[in-house]
Nucleic acid binder design. Structure first.
Lengths: 146, 146
DNA sequence: AGCCTTTCGATGCGATTGCATGGAAAAACC
DNA sequence: GGTTTTTCCATGCAATCGCATCGAAAGGCT
């Protein structure tokens, strides 16, 4: 295998490092206030926006592994943020609904989450650079070998 | 807390998704051939390039948590890729040396690692876009709140 | 209908992570 | 030189992850 181009290696290392720093910062911000980790927010938001959904749909939307989501939901149900409701037209699955507390938790997390995003990304890259960044990252945010 | 700008949110989600897909792909490629995960490669490369180093130096260079590196080194020593050599001028620490097998392992991993990088990034973004991407990511790859 | 394949979701188990802490040597301070 | 603070690295413990696999229901096919 030939060496990837220098620009590829540079972009690779910075991409991974940047994402790691960003997500670490976000997780740390939430944790510092005793709030759940970012994945919880993503689940809560997806359901609040899209309505009750099946685990499979969330799994695809969020890009998580099947077993990871299954257990994440377990924890969130245990925390009373979500409920599993048997699915009428498919006895294998169920619909995930937000509870009142789930809705409240999402609202409580948002300011912290938003602040973290702003600190980690918004405040560090100019508006037009963020636009360019989003455009350049678009193909990479699609499943590989598609 | 105000809502971050739309461009910030878009860049945020794509950044995290892109990095996740890329690192997953890389880890999966190595695993499929029975090779160790990417972090092992990074450690092996850092030592091969920089010579024997102390855990602390690697920790900074690689951006890992202290305990994570400590245990990673444990595993690599157990796998006979690294040796811990007492440090002459500082009895607290030690120097990490590559073994012959460590050197061989890095060489064995490289083609697979390189191929994965190329597939996940090189082949999906044009040369000039990779350059732009690396430039835009530069500030984000620096520790936050610096 | 009866069988085969696919999809949905959960889970056992071993490996890894993250937090907090511990212990020991070095550095700084007085 | 003795004391306090800081740095370096390891580790106990609980939580989480990742892989593989399983059970059950759907869907397809003949």
């Amino acid at each position: 295998m030939a060496m990837p181009a220098a620009t590829t290696l540079l972009a690779w290392t910075r991409l991974l490092r940047a994402a790691d720093l960003a997500s670490q910062h976000c997780a740390a911000s939430l944790r510092a206030l005793g709030l759940p980790p970012p994945e919880w927010y993503d689940v809560l938001l997806a359901i609040e926006r899209g309505g009750a959904q099946r685990p499979r749909d969330l799994q695809i939307a969020l890009g998580t592994e099947q077993y990871a989501l299954s257990r994440l939901v377990d924890r969130m149900v245990k925390a009373r943020l979500l409920t599993r409701v048997p699915c009428a037209d498919d006895a294998r699955g169920h619909l995930l609904h937000l509870t009142i507390e789930g809705r409240a938790m999402r609202a409580a997390m948002w300011p912290v989450y938003a602040e973290a995003i702003e600190t980690a990304l918004g405040a560090r890259v100019a508006e037009e650079d963020r636009t360019a960044l989003a455009r350049l990252l678009a193909p990479l945010a699609e499943p590989i070998s598609a």
